[in-house]
Each structure stands twice: as C-alpha cells, then as structure tokens.
Amino acid sequence: MIRLDNISKAYEAVQALSDISISFPRSKTTIIAGADGAGKSTIFRIILGLEKADSGKIYINEDEVRKDFSKITRISGFMPERFSLYTDLTVEENLDFFADINNVPFKRRESLKIRLLENTGMINFRNRRAGALSGGMKQKLSLSSILLSSPELIFLDEPTTGVDPLSRIEFFRIIDMLKEEGKTIVISTPYLDEAENGDHIIFLKNGRIIKKGDIAELKRNVPFRLWRILPKGNIFELIKKLKGKNSEGENFFIKGKYLNFIGKHGDGALDHIDAIEISEQKPALEDIYMYYESEEVKGDAGL
C-alpha cells in the first residue's frame, strides 16, 4: 500500500501541495477529485518520482521511499492526463513498445495484447496510427499500454477529460473489470459524477485536502441537508434573496434549471420563496464537495 505523509510541493511562488497525507487502500478505487490546478497531477508525479517533493515522506508497504522510486514504478501503471503515446506509431506498435520497455515477456504479451484489444474494442484498429484514433480510443489505448505489464497499482490522471460520454461509460466498464481483478486504482478527476465509481475519495482544493474518506460513509454522515428548488421566476433573483439572509451553514449552487440549497438547520430559510418545486434530496458527491468547498472558503476568509 502506498502512503503519503505530509507531502508539500511548490513551483516557485505557487504552492501546489500542502501537507498532503493520504493512502490508497489495496484492491480499492480511490478518487482524487478537484478542480484544475488543485494538485491532482502533482500527487501522481511525486508518487512516481517524476517530481521531487519539497517535504514529506512516501511509504510503500511501510518502507520509506527515498530515492529508489522503482520500488513503486515496477508495480505501477500510469496514464497521464494528456495522450502521451506515439501518434505516428500504430496501436499495436505502441503496445509493443511499452511492453518492450517494461520487460513484458513476448509469449505473455502476445496473448494479453489480443485480450486487451478485444476487451477495449480495438482489435480492428490495431494497425491504425494512434494519432488517427478518437479521443476515447486514445484513452483506451493508453490504458491498454499500461495494463500489458499487469501492474498492481494503476494511476489514472483525468482519464476521461475531453472524452465523449459513451466512451466514458465504456472506459469505466473497463475500470470495473480491473476492480474485479483486485487492482488498486487511483483516478483523478474534475468530474464528481465519475467519482461515484470509487470506494474512497479525496477532495482536493488549491493543493490542500478539504475532505477525504470512504464514499459510502461520507454519504451516510453528511452534516447538512439538501433541497432542490425549481424557482418560479428568475433564478438569479432567488440567489440574491437567499444571499441577503446570509445564514450560517447555508449555501446554494445552480444545477441546470434548479438551485441546490444546502442547509444545516432545516428548511426555514426557504420560507416565503417563490418556487414551483422544493424537494429534499439525498446529497450526491458533488453536493458533498460543494459543502466542504464552501466551508473551506469560509475558513480561508476567517469566517
């Protein structure tokens, strides 16, 4: 199991990570969720030894990793956010190359390659140049290239950013298969609907952890209630009205044509509001993130 202990990293004046302490439970899927610039990719790069942390420690199975990151990389597969395979090589040439540099024995590679190409629906595209693949296919190829070396740990950095919805569904189907095989998977994503696919979650903001834990447990123990409001008039007028009340522990955000209202003390704040519909909802991860994110903002502002 990989464990990070008080990891900090700054790029000149920008503090990318501040005192990050996390671990990735074995055979579970951990989601690192946060907006762009939250520090998601930096965590991966530090774990894999591609960047050096300014302070803090990294452990693998309770052994501290100081210089020899091959202890981690030899059991890991990493899929960067950007498509990093060779666009001028074919699908199969890319797979062969990454199998070669990862010392995958030829016999095992050939059967595994065919299985991966079949499972990802790319068998008919094996001779196509990677640069000519669609966004979703490129991501599946990237994933296949790391699966060839059968890693125990899989790090996926925003694997579905810029990928069409169908391909995203397809991609997570493959992730489910990997979960069933007992792989430890870490996925970073800015999309909180995708985060629902995980077992554990780490909410990251500006390089700091704002909340982490078991997803099911987080959902069971939400410290707030959520109402969905369909306003009768202009949604922004409603926001203005609610802002004027400025009650502690209350927050709201637009979701489509609805306004999601987060409150700690019941729905008193919603009295006398012109709405077509007000209904209490079970919070999703997105609502939980919004709650802790707003708490963090208030903390930052000294409220």
Partner: peptide, 8 residues
C-alpha cells in the same frame, strides 16, 4: 515520463 517510469 512513461519511459522514465519504466525499468529501462
């Protein structure tokens, strides 16, 4: 980066 994290 992908080459760097390989055993090569």
């Amino acid at each position: 980066d992908l080459i760097f994290i390989s055993p090569i």
